[in-house]
Write a protein that binds this DNA or RNA. Structure first.
Ligand code: MN
Ligand code: MN
Ligand code: MN
Ligand code: MN
Lengths: 227, 227
DNA sequence: TTAATTTTTTAGATTTGTCTAAACATTTAG
DNA sequence: CTAAATGTTTAGACAAATCTAAAAAATTAA
């Protein structure tokens, strides 16, 4: 890391921050330790590289790690990860609300902006945006102490025929996925009704804006619903 | 450079961008080739490191460089440097105008933001800010084609007794310097009159807002005036 | 125009983050 | 319960950006 990017006191490199964030996201769902291969896959890197980094993060007391046993974030590691996520989501709100980007265009830019290191900047950005609670994809934005409401949305793929609900979020941020939803009229806040579930491939037929559409089971897994 | 920060087509690292920017600024004033030691001093690094980087930038055709002869930006290198400067200055305007930072607080944050790689983001930011012509320190903001008016301001240190003028810029961005000016009431746009020049140490006595103050010759060199 | 001084480059290390190939450990299946 | 498959770590290398110390070139001064 170049000296021109010297960070605050606890100097985490972009790379370290990305590892911490990935470990955080992987431990959100399943409870146990986060495995080397899972991290390697998410970060599009090799298991050997992950092992190296896990040792380093462990050295810095950002994770608990023992050989062959996977990783857990320490409180310090968790705080760091949540702070990066806070910044990511605030910048996404900025890009959509102030610069008129679409929700499918902001993720990659936020991946860069999330590493800008200025606590003051984050707090002022939060204020400028009027302390938003959710990002453009429905994800909750942690406050400056790292607290946020855990809202247990249900995957569209779990709904039954005739269930009704509101689209509250997505669990996949790729532009391709979001553009596809947009084309189908599936945007945040939209009410929908499940009109049928296809026995053969699990695809879900829904009614949105009085129009009938259908999404594959894979897509339905990434659409989050509040009933 | 980590793969998570893979940039656009012409992949310049933060470090390369900072070198190009420094070479650009050093060639703004004196015309000839930019010397190794001058770069080393501005970047707070060692001459040996500079030599390594000059060879690399030359390899990439961003500068013209021959051993012992110093460096010149190529058109491509100049364009890259100006684009980084454009981003730096636009972000400074954002920080001051939208997030209410003071002019002495924004430089370091902009040093990080200037490396965010998204042409679309820059254009939308420019529009959001209503296409500002100057940054909070009076420096001109290049347009998206890299063009900007060269405005030949005069250093306060060059003025004579009884000369009048407007403060149009500063050529030093450190927080300490800017805070000092602020304390003396020397902010952008302020009219001033030179009431005396001290023979002994060259310090400049001025009248601003009907009050008399005095700045050292060193400080006067960094205050830019339009008569 | 030789000598002293300044400037620049080279040589050789170091740190960070990455990789491949091979070894080792753990889990799963027969 | 052994054997195969899967998952993880080690060993050794590499590229980027940096450093120190020493050599070489260019400039300035005597
Ligand atoms: Mn995102
Ligand atoms: Mn998001
Ligand atoms: Mn600045
Ligand atoms: Mn500025």
């Amino acid at each position: 890391m170049s000296k021109h990017l010297v960070r605050h006191l606890k100097m985490q490199s972009f790379t370290e921050e990305n590892y911490l964030k990935t470990i955080y996201h992987l431990s959100e769902n399943n409870e146990g330790a986060v495995q080397t291969n899972a991290i390697a896959e998410k970060m599009q890197t090799k298991a050997a590289s992950v092992t190296d980094m896990l040792r380093k993060l462990s050295e810095k007391e950002l994770i608990n790690y023992k050989k062959y046993q996977g990783a857990h974030l320490t409180p310090l590691g968790k705080q760091t990860a949540i702070n990066v996520i806070r910044k990511h989501r605030l910048w996404e709100v900025f890009l959509v609300e102030k610069l008129n980007f679409k929700w499918d265009e902001v993720h990659d830019i936020a991946e860069e902006l999330e590493h800008i290191n200025s606590p003051e900047l984050v707090e002022r950005l939060d204020e400028f945006l009027a302390f938003p609670k959710n990002d453009p994809h429905g994800d909750p934005i942690p406050d400056k102490n790292g607290n946020f409401d855990f809202v247990p949305f249900i995957k569209l793929s779990k709904l039954k025929k005739d269930d009704k609900g509101l689209i509250m979020g997505v669990s996949e941020h790729s532009s391709a996925f979001l553009k596809h939803l947009e084309k189908l009229g599936l945007t945040l806040g939209k009410p929908l009704t499940v009109s049928a579930i296809n026995d053969f491939d699990g695809s879900v037929e829904i009614i949105v804006d009085d129009k009938k559409t259908s999404v594959t089971r894979e897509i339905a897994k990434h659409i989050l619903i509040r009933i």
